[in-house]
Design a protein around this nucleic acid. Structure first.
Lengths: 335, 335
DNA sequence: AACTTGTTTGCACAGGTGTGCAATGCCTGA
DNA sequence: TCAGGCATTGCACACCTGTGCAAACAAGTT
């Protein structure tokens, strides 16, 4: 049964303004041909009635809904929410609107999210969490929606891939620790390692091996503060505890720092140096003052928006650099 | 010009399955009359072609898009992102989908967000940030979209209002401080005080006055960690610094704690007690262990979803209770 | 066999919009 | 005055779906 919602339609405005419905449509379509007088009449009537163009119906015609689906897991995490904020802001500034789809880490959940995106004829889907099943990508392009993968390894022609210099950052982290005199380096990461986390850890481990200082490696739990506590405990309980730890995520680093200071009595950075990754807000708080790698959140967002604006035939791989932010968990090497 | 997006439509499926388009539509409409055999044929063809019902077109008919707009400012803040996560999760579990609209604090920005929501014929708009202009509410109901206001004072008939026992929590915070022997209570809040922040502070101040221990009141900046640093500095620089501080937000409390410990050498809770509000994730971290009020995020989300499910004629005011979580920034009164 | 009852199916319309096409009106130039 | 050019306008179609209505059909009853 058709439920009347009594929303104002272009037909209403046309009658009120004494013009044809086409004139109303043209008034709200940039670049269409309307005379200034009818345009004024239409605008006046629209304002009076509270008319807003129905984007659903418009999307039916133009095949561009203006909606971009953001598929994200664990969005109440500091880094995720920051990326989300930047992304929605840039999208809106570009006249698009974000549809937020929350998933857990399961394949089925992401699949459902993509079906949702397709059902709403989303212009594109930005995947911030894992997309394991390669068949899903085909499903997307078959339904004409563009795909953006952030920090994912899987290659998919036609999709935009955004990657960071993760391995190089890992190597740089080791280099920073070596230069201040660390001799027992360690890398701490989570067990549910995504590609980017793995690359960071490997970059660190390889650089350490090349320098003749093989790194201890510990991987525990999911990427969370609690896992950081466990990682710190495991590392510092060893017979030869590390004097420098690279954490693949700030959340892990916070846990490591807290357990190192409070349970093991370590002074930072005198006894122990710690480096994180992401540069979330808490890394700048006085309780941590964490030396960490800043992800170029704004650049990530901008490159996504500009790719969406382009015809999509442009290069489908964007590599951006995270850069080290020096704070107080590593002594400055300038001595 | 009509750009072909070559998405799979019901017509395509009908031809592939050798049935009428109506049969396809009925297959995907719960409760419609289709024989098992044609249903099977349709489902097989749909799966093969990758068909998904176009929710835009469906929304044009049923006048229910299934989209709920979430209008939120500063979503990269711990509490906001947690509420956002809970809300999207519950909405999805109920078969709806969230459209995320990011605003700054300006009136104009919220107005634009609401226009956006109307344009997409959103079923409802949930306002997490301020909505100052009363005329905007009329605009919403005139276009048939329902309104949910969280922690807002403005009364608007027909809209769902979700409120917390803010004033009572303020009083309870004072009571907790008084019971452990605080004699110089203070309340720290931000200058950009929303209604709920104001109620919390007033609840504290009134209870203090009633008890004959008038509270120092300080209001600085916006609700952020940095403002917390300034608040702590201002309060502890006084000639008679407080021995118990109620912060209207966890973010402020973290700043107060850090500056109290590191710059003023205060021990917590021996020299100074601190109580926050929100119970964000960081409040449970070892660096803070903040005693704070937990907002019932899940209940908030559930009551919104169930109100949306109902016909809306139900009670339009839901009052929920935040409850105190005891951690280590206030000594337990059990002695 | 004829009739009744109930299920399934296709036709056709509605919902709100953008736009090609033809028609209308206005203005300029000769 | 008339032709020609140009801006503006209205008609009608398309986009994709849900659903009322009548027709077709199957099955059971007398």
């Amino acid at each position: 049964m058709t439920i009347p919602r009594n929303a104002v339609s272009a037909k209403d405005v046309a009658e009120a303004a004494g013009v044809s419905r086409a004139a109303v449509s043209r008034t709200f379509t940039p670049g269409a041909s309307v005379s200034p007088t009818t345009r004024a009449k239409v605008l006046a009537a629209a304002e009076r009635l509270g008319y807003h163009v129905n984007h659903l119906a418009r999307g039916l015609i133009t095949a561009e809904s203006g909606i971009v689906a953001l598929i994200v897991a664990e969005l109440d995490t500091p880094f995720r929410s920051r990326l989300l904020a930047a992304l929605t802001e840039k999208l809106q500034a570009d006249g698009k609107v974000a549809m937020l789809i929350n998933t857990d880490r399961s394949d089925e959940s992401v699949k459902g999210a993509l079906r949702q995106a397709i059902s709403y004829r989303t212009d594109a889907a930005v995947v911030l969490s894992g997309m394991p099943d390669p068949a899903l990508g085909d499903l997307c392009i078959r339904n004409g929606l563009r795909l953006v993968l952030i920090n994912r390894e899987e290659g998919r022609p036609g999709a935009l891939h955004i990657r960071l210099n993760d391995a190089a950052c890992g190597a740089q982290a080791f280099e920073a620790l070596r230069r201040i005199g660390c001799v027992r380096p360690a890398v701490a990461t989570s067990r549910s390692a995504t590609t980017s986390l793995r690359l960071r850890a490997e970059g660190f481990a390889h650089a350490a091996e090349d320098a003749g200082l093989p790194a201890t490696r510990e991987a525990i739990g999911v990427t969370s503060y609690a896992a950081g506590l466990d990682l710190g405990t495991a590392l510092l309980s060893r017979s030869e505890p590390p004097d420098g730890i690279f954490c693949t995520t700030d959340l892990l680093a916070f846990g490591v720092l807290d357990v190192a200071r409070q349970r093991f009595g370590r002074r930072v950075p005198e006894d122990l140096s710690v480096i994180g990754f992401d540069d979330v807000a808490q890394a700048g708080w006085d309780a941590y003052r964490l030396t960490t790698f800043a992800q170029p959140v704004d650049e990530i967002s901008e490159s996504i928006v500009s790719w969406l604006d382009g015809n999509g035939a442009a290069d489908d791989l964007v590599e951006l650099d995270a850069h080290l932010v020096w704070r107080d968990t590593v002594s400055m090497p300038s001595r």
